[in-house]
Amino acid sequence: MFEVAKLITQEIGSFRKPLYLSKVFHKIYGTPEFEELAKKATLETLSIFDEVGMDNIGVGGEMFRWEMYEHLADKLSGIKFYGMVRSFDNRYYKKGSVVSRLERSRPFHLDEVEFVAGSSKKPIKVPVTGPYTMMDWSFNDFYSNRRELAMEFARVINEELKEIQNLWGRVSNGRKLEIQIDEPATTTHPSEMDLVVESINRSVEGISAEKSLHVCYSTDYRLVYDRMSELNIDGYNLEYANRDTINRGTGDKERVGYQDIKYFAAINEKLSTKKFLGVGVTDVHTDFIEPVKLIEDRINYALAIVGDPELVRINPDCGLRTRSREIGKQKLQNMLTARNNIIKSQYQ
């Protein structure tokens, strides 16, 4: 059995790449030079995480990946890229078209997991883009419907997770395997929540790991909370700070962004095996560095609702790649200081 700690701090996944890597990423991807630079950037990012004192170091800021959709899609036969599609403003992503049966042509994350596991003794959480999001973000020109496509993505993701599980046996050094399924699209089609549950469960079938689900910028997290008893998931790492005020205080009015944790807690209370909640306490879409005291308020508010500090984890809303490395580090630093202050004052 692994010891469960209080208010574990964790990254969600990505961290801004150093310029020396981002500038040449696509040009050198897959070459020995890429591997060298990705490893260098990972070590530098791990050292930032070490310096601020993160408990869980993720995979060192996802330096081996450009973007969560493209990274997987690029390694699947059956997907064709016709060009870029707008995400917002002048930001674009490569949206693939599924034109034939999906097959994994290369592993998605094995090299990254192996390298990070060998570079640190700290707990690692491996983020993997989930099947529902992969389906929702692809053009479907082959499968007969969205369900069929989502389940096919679930099948290939499951193959990858099984390989990570096998690898983990050799590199874990006594650590438990932690997998985070990234599903930002989870609640975008409320009528498809059955498919969300079915495809996620299929993707983690036969995987003995601590499994978490990351969702962000949802208009209604209750759709997820309502399905917690059916999802084969141990915890939920969610975005809240983006929808909160920056006013100090632990009242409902100040912590408006965290209101629906009450709904989570009410459902969690009824479950025989309790789920943990990773609470987003810093907004990744603004350079505003949340003061330590504000973050303490946010943590204390969530803690007062959930009750058990072993069921509350502390994280940024989402990947910090949207901010500069300096800003990202400061945000994490304040997050850690706030957590440590609470541990000192309430649990020591």
Binding site: V85, R86, S87, F88, K95, D136, W137, A185, T188, H189, Y217, T219, N242, H285
Partner: peptide, 13 residues
């Protein structure tokens, strides 16, 4: 206001 998902797409406004 905030970036918001445009209907059921992966594009934001």
């Amino acid at each position: 206001g905030p970036l918001t998902r445009y209907l059921e797409t992966n594009t934001f406004y």
